[in-house]
């Protein structure tokens, strides 16, 4: 096989896992992020303090160190995960920490009167979150969430270091096998560039579309 064909084949093999693990991590990260933000907003003070410490730890430590800690340290505490599972879990935790901060800011931006009014009308906390707070802040948190999601695409490349066979892993594998580093690395960079720009473009269109549909403005 020629270098071009081999590189393209490596991109075709690696890209689905890159996109898959990214989407899966964004999904779990969003759910966990909402839960963390709710626990911090409605929970007792010690819970808030504990979660704050956890969020700041995850946000302050390089992702590669967290991936190493989980993948290489995990087996010592009975957490023997496959590379893909470890990668998904590590990225989900990382995503959840950043997403939770966006949701927390979203909660804080809603006037407390709305929650009080809902409570007087007899809604319980779960209903207030699901029916009042989340719909109210959906529009304001969307740009920040989309921006973070795009950043997370780039973090998936780090998972190649814990041998997740995603895009960086498959394409740099061709590089090491053929010594055609210039061609393979250029192809790798272009693939990510395209993926990130297309996703960012799609996110902007989605934001505008939702804003138009809900506010009736452009």
């Amino acid at each position: 096989m020629s270098i071009v064909a081999e590189t393209l084949w490596a991109v075709a093999r690696g890209l689905p896992l890159t996109v898959g693990i990214w989407l899966a991590s964004v999904a779990t990260g969003l759910v966990a992020g909402v839960l963390v933000a709710c626990a911090r907003h409605f929970g007792p003070r010690p819970v808030n303090a504990l979660l704050l410490a956890m969020v700041e730890t995850v946000r302050g430590v390089p992702f590669v160190v967290q991936a190493f800690l989980l993948y290489y340290g995990g087996p010592f505490i009975g957490l023997d995960l496959t590379p893909i599972l470890a990668g998904w879990l590590a990225l989900s935790v990382y995503a959840a920490a950043y997403f939770s901060e966006v949701f927390r800011a979203g909660f804080a931006a809603i006037p407390p009167g709305h929650t009080e009014a809902a409570r007087l009308l007899g809604l319980d906390t779960r209903q207030i979150i699901a029916r009042i707070l989340l719909p109210e802040m959906a529009l304001s948190v969307l740009p920040a969430l989309a921006n973070l999601a795009v950043i997370l695409i780039k973090e998936t490349a780090i998972l190649s270091i814990i041998t997740v066979p995603e895009l960086t892993f498959t394409v740099s594998g061709v590089g090491s096998a053929t010594f055609a580093f210039a061609q393979t690395m250029t192809a790798l960079a272009l693939s990510y560039w395209l993926l990130v720009e297309l996703t960012a473009h799609a996110a902007r269109r989605l934001e505008r579309g939702i804003a138009r549909a809900t506010l009736g403005t452009a």
Binding site: K154, A157, T168, M185, L188, A189, Y192, W193, V196
Partner: peptide, 23 residues
């Protein structure tokens, strides 16, 4: 700005470390 913010830093490093010597 688009390139350096759109490509993972890891890939930029691989590009600089492995591809530049070939040029």
């Amino acid at each position: 700005i688009s390139f350096f913010r759109g490509v993972p830093l890891l890939v930029q490093l691989l590009l600089a470390y492995y591809a530049l010597p070939f040029l």
